[in-house]
Write a protein that binds this DNA or RNA. Sequence first.
DNA 1: CTTGGAATGTCAACAAGGCTGACTTAAAGT
DNA 2: ACTTTAAGTCAGCCTTGTTGACATTCCAAG
Lengths: 170, 170
Amino acid sequence: MSDGRSSAASSGESLLFLTDEQLRQGIEAMFFAYRGFTADPDRILSDMAYGRAHHRAVHFINRAPGTTVNNLLNILGVTKQSLNRVLRTLIADGLVESRVGRLDKRERHLHLTEDGRVLEGRLSDAQRARMRAAFRDAGPEAVSGFRTVLEAMMDSEMRRAYTKLKENGV
Amino acid sequence: MSDGRSSAASSGESLLFLTDEQLRQGIEAMFFAYRGFTADPDRILSDMAYGRAHHRAVHFINRAPGTTVNNLLNILGVTKQSLNRVLRTLIADGLVESRVGRLDKRERHLHLTEDGRVLEGRLSDAQRARMRAAFRDAGPEAVSGFRTVLEAMMDSEMRRAYTKLKENGV
DNA sequence: CTTGGAATGTCAACAAGGCTGACTTAAAGT
DNA sequence: ACTTTAAGTCAGCCTTGTTGACATTCCAAG
């Protein structure tokens, strides 16, 4: 490993897209693109007392209304203490509602309030606008490849969460 | 905006890949994939007293040896104070060397030491391994699309930095 | 040559948001 | 009755962002 083209020429096919140089470009592309990906919502949030963590919570509550705290925890991959801090402010500010479960009263089911939906809309409009521009510039073929690679890059646990959300939302 | 398929049917072509649902899937794919993208180096780093910020610094110093602090600042997109803290520990631990500029003594030129190169190698081997697996699973066509979309998603300033690094490194 | 401004880098202090650990409360299961 | 599970809380830590104040160096105008 280390330099050059570790994996190339390991088969008869052209595996030049697997050289260390290509991989490093992929890594750097991922780094720079993620910055763009979060930039627009971050700008909106910094005007309020909120951060990226609030955005994520609001996004997934909107995506799966009625989700339990535990479920959200698994999706976000943070500790309950960390999530709780965020959730507490969102509830106090009237953006999120926490309803005691009917079937299992230990659970709390999370919903966005009207205000919460407004914020969610502002944030995802901004984020979608950039994604839309990128998709349009790149074209449908590229978008398909984009998604294929991203899925392959996920941990299997996350891929399951992602797939579940995807199927849920058609 | 808001629901359904805002941008579809705006032309004769099939623009179904620009529906809000498709965009949201792209957003979520980006979120989950980025977690995988950073997971392996993060594991290595958490055993030491380092974090993701150290990884980024080490990566780009390795990528552009002799770079100045200011240049690194622009690439990383953080404040100089934030970078300085990270740099200070790396220098104290003997992973990075800071040489006073000969031409302009205000500048510091950054280089990895032998130890620094070892750490960099460990981190990028781990990150490349995942990227390589994802690329291989997805195939060259998908990889090309992946990169196209990511480039389109960057801020123009970041795209310039990315392109410059890319050309530098062939 | 000197002096003021701009550039570069450093130190200090603060905030957000991760984390662990210990604990409570309420409800469910067994 | 006892144990387990879901949720929440409090305390304290770490990383990594931020601003503000400051030192050093360079350069250009007077």
